[in-house]
Design a protein around this nucleic acid. Sequence first.
DNA 1: CGCGGAGTTGATGAGCATCAACCCAAGTGG
DNA 2: CCACTTGGGTTGATGCTCATCAACTCCGCG
Lengths: 245, 245
Amino acid sequence: MDGPTTRAARRTHGDLRIRAARAWTREHGDEAPHLQLLASDRAELGRIAEVIEYRTAGSRVFSYGEAANFLYLLVDGLVASSLSLDNGERQIVAFYWPGDLFGLAEDGHYVNTAEILTPSTVYRFPIRQLERFLIDHPRIQHGFFIKAVHDLRATQRQLLVMGRFDVSRRLAAFLLDCSGHDDYFDQPTRVLALPMTRYDIADYLGTSAESITRAFGLLEGQGLLRRRTAKAVELTEKLKTYVEM
Amino acid sequence: MDGPTTRAARRTHGDLRIRAARAWTREHGDEAPHLQLLASDRAELGRIAEVIEYRTAGSRVFSYGEAANFLYLLVDGLVASSLSLDNGERQIVAFYWPGDLFGLAEDGHYVNTAEILTPSTVYRFPIRQLERFLIDHPRIQHGFFIKAVHDLRATQRQLLVMGRFDVSRRLAAFLLDCSGHDDYFDQPTRVLALPMTRYDIADYLGTSAESITRAFGLLEGQGLLRRRTAKAVELTEKLKTYVEM
DNA sequence: CGCGGAGTTGATGAGCATCAACCCAAGTGG
DNA sequence: CCACTTGGGTTGATGCTCATCAACTCCGCG
């Protein structure tokens, strides 16, 4: 498989956006799912970043245990972050969509593996430089802090899904999450494009690919969705009511 | 049930400690599970905090959906953070031990319910004041950021446990987590004091209280632990090997 | 002493993992 | 251009894990 291509970050950093809802306070007109970074902030951040493009699905941005020298911002594409057991079983702990940060580490080593699911573009920031930079730019650091809190909330929510939902409900909740990403969900037709395989979904929802297929069948049987192709699903409004929380 | 008692934060803030491993970089002598805050930092933080004591188990620090005006730091005791479904099922998404921060919110409202499990002492910080304070004190904000990342890692790990482990393994992993807290684990005798009920453990591990009891039985049958009383368990060294990751 | 909640044990059935077989679409190479 | 390959997707059969309901014990407490 061919490796990624690297180049210096572009002049304009309009694509440097961090996806996150506000942590505690609500501010006027704060509905946007993206943090507001000033143009000057973006430019400064862009200065310490490199742009990398990954072409091939299946390639890895980094692997568990590697020395962690970079933090990544996904600009375009889809990335999965996973943990694996000795027996080879894999648990995907997060899908990263455009605007997401990834590259969690502990004591200088990555604590999970980041895998490319579709051709992707990322910014990568040298950790040490970034840490210094954040100390010097409290407002930007605050944005990163809010992002971390946002991800923490989302992961806790997923814990509820895993702990209390059967497979059909988990799938329904997952599809609704996906439908929040306009790159993959066409509002007018309500058709969701699924960039990942059944196996990926299963490894995310703590079940098997067969069970995912059967859950699709169940939801379809109840008129909550319609499979156009294996990777394109039309969602109905009723789907929301199926996931009671 | 009697309410909590409030008083101004004390002069000395030696108990203001934030529990977290470093996010990315490892620094010399950085083994301690607590962030290093300067004495002056602690004093400044303490100035905007109030100390609250909760006597009665079962009382709530805050409930889902309430206006979020405070962030909490647990000094002593044990607190559970949970989400509930319409049907009353409860999922505990985290136990908070001394040194943990809690009070996640979104758009100004708490996104889970914090419940007192044992008599507890907390610091509480007015959110708005704290946010201003953190912007003005980048190093302390950095500590909070690291704490958030630490919690995110821990929650992702729990997601692996929930997605890939059977009940016995989940319980074993949970007991090992608990044994990391010296307040409740006596190193010499290897006896762990469990401050929570079977129901709490079940609601954390996404199972039922009966299954927890049976899992205890299975682990005991394999010589991995010994139940002294319902709330005191002697762990063996072998327990670690049972949870292969 | 009697009450109530936690803990335990047993019986039963449902949901799902697993294994196996098969279909289908996209590539690949002759 | 078409056979062949490969991996994802689907469907069916079977057994196991665990949720659930019920009964009972144990313990602390007024």
